[in-house]
Structure formats: C-alpha cells, structure tokens
Amino acid sequence: MKILVPVKRVIDYNVKVRVRTDGSGVDLANVKMSMNPFDEIAVEEAVRLKEKGVASEIVVVSIGVQQAKDTLRSALAMGADRAILIDATSDVNQDIEPLAVARLLSRIVEAERPDLVIAGKQAIDNDMNATGQMLAGLLGWGQATFASKIEIADGRAVVTREVDGGLQTIGVRLPAVVTVDLRLNEPRYVSLPSIMKAKKKPLEERTAAALDVDVTPRLKIVRTVEPPQRVAGVRVASVDELIEKLKNQAGVL
C-alpha cells in the first residue's frame, strides 16, 4: 500500500506571532519555521503503518516556497521514502489556499496513485481545516476527518474520529483521505543518522504552472490586525474575596 502525506511549512508552534502594524500581515522575517504539528502526526502515522508492514511506500508532498524543502527533509528523516516539492510561489508571505493545494495534490494523486492520503486536520497558520476534505471532494474519494485511531483492513480504513459529542467510528473504502487529530500518536524525535540518511533520499521538484493549476487566491486579504488585547485584572487573596468580587463587582454569580 502506498501512502501520500502532504506537509506544510508554518511558523513554529512556540513562536509568538507578531502582527505588522500596517495591517499587511504577520511578520515572518527571521521567525523559526517548522512542519505543521498536525502534519507531523500524519507522517508519524504513515511511518508506523510502514513499520507494521501495512504500507510499502510513503511519499511526502509540500507546496509553496523553495524553503519547504527543509520541511520535506524533516519528513524524510522521520521515515518517508520520497519527497515532492511543488514550487507555487517565491513569496514566503503568500499562503497557498486550501482549494489550490487540494487541486495540486489531486494532480499528484493522479500520477502517484496512492491508496491512502493522510493529512493534518488543519494548519496552525491559516487555521482553515479544509484541505483534506477538499481533496477528497475533488477526487470523489471517501473521507474520515479528525482521526484519533486508524486501522487498515480488507480494503478499508476504520477510523475513530474526534467529534463534538465524543467519538465516532466510521469505515471508509480505500482509496480515501484521512485527516488526523492531536491524539492519534506522538511523533518521534529524529536521530542524527536518520537526518543524514534523509539527505540521500529522492526529492523531486515540480511547479504549479507545469501542473496547470492556477494558485491565484480566491480570498483577498484586505487587512490583518491584532485582536483586542485583554489586560490582567486583580489578584484576590482568598476564596471569600473571589466570591465577593464575582458577586458584587463582576455580577456573574
């Protein structure tokens, strides 16, 4: 079984985001960039399926700027076999929208014919939570989103999903798209030897233009601002004082 995993280069999870004062966006200059944490979980799951003998090959794909090669090398170091970079922009500030990403991925899927696409449920920069569902829609494939458990058997994936009321388990016929949630697994730390080995793994480059996909944004970002900031309130010394304040000052009790 062949698995395809899309990975995105995003601002690191621990970095405090700074919004530019002129409203033009978020400051990405000299900021640490990493693989989207949900995509790391997706790569980890694919590698575990390979280690269990369920998967035979893992192809990782990233879409965006040349620097996304670093993200692909990280995925290769975790255990993916090959990587494809789709060069879609030279501007690090241009986010390629989920629809364009899904269209590009659908071209790669047509060429690579994977049995399963495992993707992160959302990217922590645009917080869209859309690409996996869109890809499944474009391909006419089944989808299982927000997975906290994946089992592959008899030509289908049995997926436990994190939903609003608790958990839901569904079966989805392969080929399919599965998007992963936080509690599916804990991604491994990569060792130095695997980082060295990853440098020798194949990394192929394509362009959005050659794949004949228009990546012009459908959403025009008019401005980006900081949300209203809360200010720290008061320290209370005791439970009694807290109750008194909540009753008489805040009026919420």
Partner: peptide, 13 residues
C-alpha cells in the same frame, strides 16, 4: 488566524 493571534478581513471573489 494563527490561533486567534491575528484577525483577517477577507473579501471573497
């Protein structure tokens, strides 16, 4: 966006 650390005004085309 960015876990609520920024708010974008967007115009759909």
């Amino acid at each position: 966006v960015y876990a609520g650390n920024a708010v974008q005004t967007v115009q759909s085309t």
